[in-house]
Every structure is written in C-alpha cells, then in structure tokens.
Computed example of a mutant assay.
Amino acid sequence: MAINDNVLIKIRERKDSLTPVERLVAEYILANKEEIPHLSIKSLAQASKTSDASVLRFCKTMGYNGYRSFIVSISASLGSMDEESTDQYTDIQPGDELTTIISNIGRNNMRSIEDTLSVLDRSAVERAVHALRTSNRIMFFGIGASGLVAQDAEQKFTRINKMCHAFIDGHSQLTAATLLTKGDVAIFISNSGDTIEILDALDIAKKNGAHVIAITKYSKSELSERADTLLSISTPEISIRSGAMGSRIAMLTIIDMLFAGVASADYQQVKKYLSKSRSIIANKRRR
C-alpha cells in the first residue's frame, strides 16, 4: 500500500509499460481527468475506443479489484491534485532568471518527493529495513547519477557500523555480485530499471542467494520485475534530465528512509556508533 495513494500519478508513471489497449485507457484518463468520476465503465470504454473488459483489466493492472474502487481513488486523487495545481514540474528554459530557476528547481524537487510518497509501498519499506537490519553485508549498485546515490548510502550505513560498500562501475559490480552470499543484501539503484550493467550484476546476486532490493521508477522494468523487494520512485516528465535531478532527489529520500528505519529500530546500539564517529570528526575540526 502506498503511503499517500494517488492513482493519477501511478497511471502517468506506468503508462509506457502498459499493453497497447491499456495505454489507450490510460491516455484518455490522463487527458480527461475531471470527467472520469462521472463516467460509467461502458462510457469510459467507448470514449477510449476500447471495451468494458479492457477497462476492467486496466483497473486490475493498476491494483484495483473493480471499477467502483478505481473511480473512488480517481476522485480522491483529483482532490489532492487540485491543491497542488500550482506546483507542476517545470523544465529548464533558455534565458530563465536565476530567481525563476531557484523557484522551479525547489518546486521540482519537492514534487519528486511528494509523488514518490504516492507510489511507495509502505510494507516494502518495512521488508527492506528488516532485511538490512539482519544482513551480514550490504552492497549498493548504481551507475552515473544512481552511483552517487549508492555512495551516499554507503556513507550513511558505514556510520552505524554496517559492513557495506558502493560499486559504481560495471566491472567492480560484477566482481562484488560474485562474492555475495545468502544473508547479504544487494541494493540496485536505477531510474530506468533497464541499465545493462545493473541487470548483469543482479543476475549474479540472485543466483548467489542475496536479498535483492530495487530502487527504481514506478513502471514495469527488468529490475522491478526481478527484485525481491521493490521501492518505487516517481520523477518528473520533462525533456531535459539535467543530471537526473528529480530521480536523484527521490532516490536519496528512499535511502534516508531506510537508514532512519534501521537506526531507529536499533537505536541503543546505533547511538554509540554515531556518537563515536561524531566525536572523531569534531576532534579533527578543532585541529
């Protein structure tokens, strides 16, 4: 179950991975949001040039048992989006004033986090925290901007005495995955979920019995399908990715959740590690 369920965001994120017929339903809903709560299943089928069965199948793909519960969720999502209508994602424009850029980037980052909360499965976060707490070792895998997120995760979990390491190039990832065993956790970070180097290492990690956690966009992908625990993010639909800013912020937020979850559950033990590392760093600053 998502923390703040918003089916319109889910449809937007999953649209490209749907079947052609389901995509027709999705595109019509996204283009005509306001009228959807007033349509019967037959009316929506006719409007989207599909069939009653196709609409029902689409509802089930989106995680609903029937059309009625789907429509109720659409209505709730519309109410939520009305409150946020002024906070739409904004792409980089040539010649923007710096004040405009500051405002737009701040708003985009906040929306990335808010939208991620709409698709993130709370029970999956709980499973991931449990796996991390009971793990022998933790290995983080990411390429490019996702590699920076992996390095941030390594820095955080090292501070609480977790045996962990981040691997950010294809060759080292294959080597690391080969050394994984049962009791280890491998966290694969990829916005697309289709990065070849990540998938190659994933294959090896699964064969070796490691628990695989995926942090990737809310859509059907090789990574999302093959992970033991899936943590989904939502990112802006804009043409210029600018170093994957939106996805990076969303992924860093997931890492923070996992770190805080582990640290809170094992607080008495973790507290002494954090105190030790803080005092060491403080002593260095005084020199």
Rank of each mutant, 00 (worst) to 15 (best):
R159F: 05
P37R: 00
V55W: 15
I254E: 07
S146E: 01
A244L: 10
K276I: 03
L174H: 07
G183K: 10
S80R: 05
T158K: 15
Q268A: 08
L258G: 09
V72E: 08
T158W: 11
I36Y: 08
L199F: 15
A26G: 14
K42T: 13
K271R: 05
L223S: 09
K10H: 00
L39N: 03
I102Q: 15
T235V: 14
E225N: 07
S43V: 08
Q269H: 14
I204M: 01
H165Y: 07
L8T: 12
L18W: 04
I36A: 05
I3L: 08
T19I: 01
Q93M: 05
A166C: 11
K284G: 04
S54D: 15
L18K: 15
D228R: 12
G183Y: 11
T61A: 04
S146H: 13
I255C: 01
E83Y: 07
A31G: 14
D256S: 14
D169A: 00
K42F: 06
D256Q: 10
N136H: 02
H165T: 02
R14A: 08
L30N: 12
A227Y: 01
E13T: 04
A153F: 03
K182Y: 02
S264G: 09
V55D: 08
R57S: 06
A45P: 15
R159E: 04
L8H: 06
D96L: 05
I92R: 14
D203K: 11
S190R: 09
V129M: 06
R248A: 02
D152A: 14
T100A: 13
S69F: 05
R286H: 01
L39V: 04
L132V: 08
E126A: 09
I255Y: 13
S219D: 08
H130W: 09
A210T: 07
I240E: 09
A282D: 01
I160M: 05
I74L: 03
T116D: 06
H211C: 01
S146A: 03
Q88K: 09
R14P: 14
T134L: 03
K15D: 06
A45M: 03
A128W: 08
S73M: 12
V262F: 12
D169K: 03
S48N: 10
D169V: 12
A150E: 12
Q269Y: 05
T90K: 14
N4I: 01
T19Q: 10
V119Q: 15
R226L: 14
K284P: 02
A124M: 14
Q151P: 01
T134M: 00
S77G: 12
K156H: 11
L18S: 07
Q269A: 01
S73C: 06
Q269F: 06
E27R: 15
H38P: 14
G183T: 15
G261S: 05
S80G: 08
E197K: 02
T181G: 15
I254A: 03
E83L: 09
A176M: 02
G147I: 00
D82P: 11
M1K: 07
